[in-house]
């Protein structure tokens, strides 16, 4: 056992967790600021300079709210719902390469927790398990609105997983690997996958919105029809966990989109800078986070621009548009790969 290695991994895991939580915290702030901007308002500006302490105030408020427990048959599952949602949301970050490797004292330290050779399948697996938190929480609430929200969430996630998997498949065919590290390293400079797979990107983006339960696909918590959807009965920090998990999911989805389609930590003209490996790695991380922030902004932009879908429209879009287009995309990718070989 190499203790250096273990300590390094623990530090990396802690850092990634902290960053995920911080990003999720400030996403709530930026969500409200952007919403205000799109609606020609000011947004939160009372707590601290520019309202920057607002997330802290929100968190404290949630913590001090009354812990409400509905008259449910299954208290254990009621508590486990938000826990699972949070746990699964944080799991995905393990396989994302946040940067190339640092070189400290002649040793290589990769900025990735686990470089497994099926990284992208791992992400698909974790997102497919992610629905349990919402389903169990909604069911255990013993409330028909919650149950409807949970059922909507389950069928929506299963439907959009298929199209998402098919969109990823085209990328995998192109890069000949399931490892995220390998997929990113093939997109050096500006040789990004988006130039080859624009259709795949569109499908993946739409599915990511649906998988995160973000507007225009936020039907599981659709407040005009279902009060609060699956989290109607939740209060205090348990509600906070559900909301927080959504923002973490958004952060991770943005990271996956930037890694798969926008070159991850690669940026144009990176070879002509002539910097040392460590500086390149640090700049790469910064660039990666810039890309992630852009997609986070895109998520919010879409939420405050588009109206919500109706449930039958959502299902029709998933099954009769996205899946056939994704299969067609795979077919074309295969033909082009054949011709090029």
């Amino acid at each position: 056992m190499d203790w250096n290695y273990i300590i390094y991994k623990i530090i990396l895991i802690t850092a990634i967790m902290t960053v995920s939580l911080l990003v999720a915290m400030y996403s709530t702030y930026f969500e409200r600021k952007f919403a205000a901007w799109f609606q020609d308002r000011l947004g939160p500006n009372r707590a601290g300079p520019f309202g920057l302490m607002q997330p802290l105030a929100d968190g404290l408020k949630l913590l001090f709210k009354e812990e409400f427990m509905p008259n449910t048959a299954n208290r254990f599952l009621f508590i486990m719902g938000p826990m699972l949602a949070m746990f699964v949301a944080l799991l995905t970050s393990a396989v994302i390469p946040w940067g190339s490797s640092l070189n400290i004292g002649g040793k290589e330290y990769a900025l990735q927790v686990a470089d497994i050779n099926i990284g992208i399948l791992y992400i698909v697996a974790v997102t497919s398990v992610g629905v349990y938190g919402i389903m169990l929480g909604g069911w255990a609430s013993n409330n028909k609105y919650s149950l409807l929200g949970a059922i909507r969430a389950a069928s929506q996630m299963i439907s959009y997983e298929l199209a998402m998997g098919l969109a990823i498949l085209a990328i995998v065919m192109m890069s000949d690997s399931l490892s995220l590290n390998e997929i990113i390293s093939q997109q050096k400079g500006i040789n990004w996958n988006i130039w080859y797979q624009p259709v795949g990107f569109l499908i993946f983006m739409i599915c990511a919105l649906a998988e995160c339960n973000r507007a225009p696909f936020d039907l599981p918590e659709c407040e005009t029809e279902l009060v609060g959807g699956f989290h109607t009965e939740y209060s205090s920090m348990k509600l906070g966990f559900f909301l927080f998990a959504e923002y973490i999911n958004m952060f991770i989805s943005s990271a996956v989109i930037s890694a798969l389609f926008f070159g991850g930590y690669h940026f144009p003209f990176e070879d002509s800078l002539g910097l040392s490996q460590n500086w390149m790695a640090i700049i790469g991380v910064v660039v990666f986070f810039m890309k992630i922030s852009f997609f986070g902004f895109l998520f919010m932009w879409i939420r405050w621009t588009l109206p919500r879908f109706r449930y039958d429209q959502l299902m029709r879009l998933g099954w009769t548009w996205l899946i056939p287009i994704a299969i067609f995309n795979i077919l074309i990718t295969g033909v082009v790969l054949m011709i090029n070989n």
Binding site: L121, V124, A125, Y132, S155
Partner: peptide, 18 residues
Amino acid sequence: AVVNIIVYAGAIMVLFLF
């Protein structure tokens, strides 16, 4: 391992629960 989770835990059991 991963396909087992995707197919059974992620899809089929969701339908069971559903």
